[in-house]
Design a protein around this nucleic acid. Structure first.
Lengths: 240, 240
DNA sequence: CCTACATTTCGGCCCCCGCCGAACGGTCTC
DNA sequence: GAGACCGTTCGGCGGGGGCCGAAATGTAGG
């Protein structure tokens, strides 16, 4: 058979190579960890995934070469982050496809605590997810600002709402304005895309939400409760 | 390290296992081939991917066990197809992410022929893609039936259009009505989701399009040219 | 310069997995 | 029932790749 290409489809080798990036448990852990949208050092990721630094280094090399991560060297540190929203979406899509074992119970108190905080409110790359993400998405939909019945798109009233709330929909590039991201705890779509990112960014900038712990979980502040009540009619009770 | 779980994230093992399904070139070829939405026999796939029947059999076993394919035994044949639209979407998403080598030139006359037919009009699982898919999507958008500027959703006028054209939007289940599918030859989104599937199905049923060859390529018939001109104002020239 | 620390490179180990051919079990046709 | 055909199972081969520890590189700070 020699050096002959075996596959009919020219896309297949690339597809297999891309999937191979995700097909290792350690690399998958890295990618899911980086889904918090921030930059981590190689050592942090190594400890987080319980592998030797040398192992982590090799994995990061592959992920960077493969275009999934970008790196930034600062002194003796190597910071990596997801390369772009497209990659983040791919990680989300794959994670959403995985059968969620909802039967599983938390094993430790610590896990139960962070687990419920994560379920309550967290970031998903650059937008808000968890029950908070669902609550916001539902409120937008219920008020006629977002349509989910014929797809997933802001309405004209929705565009005005963002404008009036002072949230800049930084509409640039080809990234879609809105996109449904399937939440893997709630199993329902929540607002992602440029609009979701703008909302999350504004919520953090205006201290409507603050990050808690060192991971993806966030918490709604009293300021945030007031803002969400005023702008979207969300009761504070629904945010706890 | 014993039997201890190494990963912090419970999703990671599942994600890695799912990705491993795609991470083999032969399996990737199978999945891309099955993206035509039809059922293939094990032998057909084996020949198409240039592997021994025994090899194909093992791969199909994994893909079926992994839930990506469903099988249907008929006599001495084993027919397989993509398990559901969700799987198809995942294959599309991964394929769209791979860098398209647009620089590559067709090597043979046969490849050039089928290649341009594929680029002109083809199916993508259960909806229409290629230039035809783009042309239809653009026409819908231009007539105010589909909004792409604030997401990707039909308008109320769009819902009426489907109704008046006699195309049944079989709205059932949780599948989204519309969804943008990124075309990997055109690099632009075209209509997918329930609406895209309904349109494709109707086009084939009403003989607006017919399949050519044994793969994904389709051709617009004279009936189809009339229908698209009448319903969407598309010039026949744009369909050739 | 010398120490501490983050990261990388290298060698070696081992397991996993894709591949094939040969043999076998069903199924259809004549 | 004989023969052709489709698919599966099994054994064995070979390569790729993840893992670690040890040593090397490079940076920050005394």
């Amino acid at each position: 058979m020699g050096g002959m290409t075996r596959s009919t489809d020219p896309v297949a080798p690339g597809l297999a190579a891309l999937a191979a990036m995700f097909a290792d448990e350690t690399r998958a852990t890295f990618l899911l960890t980086l889904l918090d949208g921030r930059a981590w050092t190689a050592g942090e990721l190594a400890r987080h995934a319980h592998v030797a630094p040398s192992t982590a280094s090799e994995h990061l090399g592959k992920l960077v070469t493969g275009g999934l991560l970008t790196e930034e060297r600062q002194g003796r540190h190597r910071y990596v982050r997801l390369a772009d929203p497209h990659v983040a979406q791919l990680v989300e899509d794959l994670a959403a496809q995985v059968a969620p074992d909802t039967t599983r119970r938390p094993r430790t108190l610590r896990e139960a605590g962070t687990g419920s905080a994560m379920a309550r409110a967290r970031t998903c790359y650059d937008h808000l997810a968890g029950r908070l993400g669902i609550t916001l998405t539902d409120a937008l939909t219920h008020r006629g600002l977002l349509r989910q019945d014929t797809g997933f798109a802001l309405t004209d009233a929705g565009l005005r709402w963002f404008d009036e709330a002072g949230i800049d929909l930084n509409r640039t590039g080809r990234r879609p304005l809105t996109r449904g991201c399937l939440d893997w705890t709630e199993r329902r779509p929540h607002l992602a895309g440029t609009a979701g990112a703008a909302l999350c960014r504004h919520a953090l900038d205006a201290h409507w939400c603050v990050r808690i712990g060192s991971e993806r979980a966030v918490k709604v502040t009293p300021d945030g409760e007031r803002a969400f009540a005023e702008l979207l009619g969300i009761e504070a009770r629904a945010l706890r």
